[in-house]
């Protein structure tokens, strides 16, 4: 009883911050509310959902968002781990190096996205200047659907790898030094120390960083909006950008809400299945170890 009473404030808070908007979007997704209805909500049953299911632009954006998230978070984890391991080693000016490595993350996304847009610009950006000076063709990276998304992943990796490195560095520092001592005394190689001690003990931190970053990457908006505006030919458009376009450019709030609720459901399913597989994997491994 006391337990519930103590939890009540946070439950109410979560209800206001998360529950209310979700419910009102759900309500809105069952209504036509657009410039055609003069922004009045008119019940239209499953019309928004019917459109949602058949909307190939949405499904293309959904796959693109997953592609962007998986690629950028995957690379960030790998690079972040390497950087964390380097920063963890004792060296001269470690404090300075650690703080300066955080600079990309401290920059506002809009500013850095604008910077990268100019770097990738064709024909005035330095990359194009370089390739044309060598006599090669202009790369036109942001103008080509097959390369533009890679440029957005690259910029995202550049910006948020320090964040991942910071979390993993904290994780590394929480591993007791005597474990490594014992490992060395047993005569284990550095690589097996890493595999048997560092990685398993770092797993919770890797999971945490991955979760934070995935949640952010699925909702990516500012980076894409500034760098490519979703183009060329919608090849870099994300779910969040499409929802924004529907609400603010097309003035169709009913369908904008449908996209948000639909994406919420899809992502919940995705996260739940990921969690399920990780759980399954962990159980299998613990069985193997006990054997």
């Amino acid at each position: 009883m006391i337990l519930i009473a103590l939890l009540l404030p946070s439950i109410i808070f979560l209800g206001i911050v998360f529950g209310f908007p979700l419910l009102s979007y759900l309500w809105l997704s069952l209504h036509a509310n657009s410039v055609l209805t003069s922004f009045r909500s008119i019940f239209n049953g499953w019309a928004n959902w019917n459109r949602f299911i058949h909307d190939y632009r949405y499904w293309q954006d959904f796959l693109q968002t997953i592609r962007f998230s998986v690629a950028s978070v995957g690379i960030e984890l790998l690079l972040g781990l390497i950087i964390a391991l380097i920063l963890h080693r004792p060296m001269k000016f470690r404090g300075w190096i650690r703080s300066s490595s955080l600079i990309p993350w401290a920059l506002p996304t809009t500013v850095m996205a604008l910077g990268w847009r100019w770097i990738f610009n064709s024909p005035f950006g330095p990359i194009d200047q370089f390739t044309t000076a060598l006599g090669a063709q202009s790369l036109n990276i942001l103008g080509n659907p097959s390369t533009a998304w890679i440029a957005t992943v690259y910029s995202d990796v550049w910006k948020t790898t320090p964040f991942v490195a910071l979390i993993l560095l904290a994780g590394l520092q929480s591993i007791p030094a005597d474990l490594y001592e014992a490992c060395r005394l047993e005569g284990a190689s550095a690589s097996s120390c890493f595999r048997r001690i560092t990685l398993p003990l770092l797993m919770p931190y890797i999971g945490l960083a991955a979760m934070f970053r995935l949640a952010q990457a699925f909702g990516v908006f500012d980076l894409i909006q500034v760098m490519t505006g979703g183009g060329p030919a919608s090849s870099t458009e994300s779910i969040a950008l499409y929802a924004y376009l529907n609400a603010l450019r097309f003035l169709d709030f009913g369908y904008g809400a449908t996209i948000i609720i639909g994406s919420f459901i899809l992502l919940s399913i995705l996260v739940a299945s990921c969690w399920f597989f990780v759980h399954l994997f962990n159980r299998k491994r613990s069985i193997m170890i006990t054997k």
Partner: peptide, 13 residues
Amino acid sequence: DRSSEQILVAAGG
């Protein structure tokens, strides 16, 4: 044609 129709209906046209 079909997609345009769905948009019209969903948006309240």
